[in-house]
């Protein structure tokens, strides 16, 4: 805890300073609430409306976790398949990159037209933003397996599955985790965007309602909630990484 305090006081101080400047600026310049609310009024709105927010938050978190798990699983499977089949990798790699060039905002309404308002188009959106960082990171991890280790395994008579399970996979794990961390933060964004498409509940819905009724304070509440959820998610993955990669900690 004291370590957290020691490391965390600098960014916390900067954040606090920024909020103070914001607060002061809003009051001094007399900016109307619908244009830019002060941090205190955002906090107030957060406190008052928390009960009504809960169902939205819950739905977004569930969607995020579901989409993240599916997206990352697909990402890892794609990486493994492409690694095992170099020919396919060459053929498909440009397609992978192109998939990231399609603007999600444009694609999302199309997905609704194709698949309706159910869960499927939402999961597709999240998967699309989630799988890419994981796939690229995992593939890179597999590829950079030290040749002398591979050489040892082959000399010792390792089969292809053993080579993968005992060498390439554990070697790629740190890389996979950095991919997962990026995907974790993306997945929250993906969930919110997918909720814009049409959902009954969710932070995305709450946000759309708030902005169309000029409740700017609520928009900011939504923004802060998204940030906090992303941070928590990131923290969870980091904790899982620490646990799975104990050997790295002890090395240093």
């Amino acid at each position: 805890m004291s370590k957290l305090l020691q490391k965390g006081w600098r960014p916390a101080a900067v954040l606090l300073l920024l909020l103070c400047i914001w607060e002061a600026a809003v009051h001094l310049a007399n900016i109307p609430r619908w244009l830019l609310p002060a941090p205190t009024s955002i906090a107030l709105e957060f406190g008052n409306g928390f009960g009504g927010l809960m169902p939205h938050l819950q739905s977004t978190i569930l969607l995020t976790i579901g989409g993240f798990l599916i997206g990352c699983t697909i990402g890892i499977i794609v990486a493994i398949v492409l690694h095992m089949l170099p020919g396919v990798q060459e053929a498909v790699y440009p397609l992978l990159i192109l998939s990231q060039n399609v603007p999600i905002i444009v694609l999302a309404p199309l997905l609704v037209i194709w698949f309706g308002f159910g869960l499927l188009p939402k999961i597709i959106v999240i998967t699309l933003v989630c799988f890419f960082p994981v796939t690229i990171a995992a593939m890179n991890g597999f590829r950079t397996t030290p040749s002398e280790m591979k050489h040892y395994m082959l000399m010792a008579g390792a089969k292809k599955t053993q080579l993968f399970a005992k060498l390439e996979w554990p070697h790629a794990l740190p890389a996979v985790f950095s991919g997962l961390k990026i995907s974790a933060t993306y997945s929250v964004m993906g969930a919110v965007i997918s909720e814009w498409l049409g959902a009954k509940k969710g932070i995305g819905v709450y946000m759309t309602l708030a902005s169309s009724s000029f409740r700017t304070d609520r928009v900011f509440v939504a923004i802060f909630i998204i940030m906090i959820v992303s941070l928590v998610f990131f923290g969870l993955i980091t904790a899982a990484e620490r646990w799975a990669l104990k050997w790295r900690e002890e090395e240093s």
Binding site: P146, Y152, M155, A156, P170, W247
Partner: peptide
């Protein structure tokens, strides 16, 4: 392959395995 036991120039121990697990790798295969 796999009919001889081998010790390379570099130790090539697997950093994610404990010493015990490293030592047992050849048997495991």
């Amino acid at each position: 392959r796999g009919l001889i036991s081998y010790m390379p120039q570099q130790p090539t121990l697997f950093p994610w395995r404990t010493i015990l697990d490293n030592v047992l790798l050849g048997q495991e295969l």
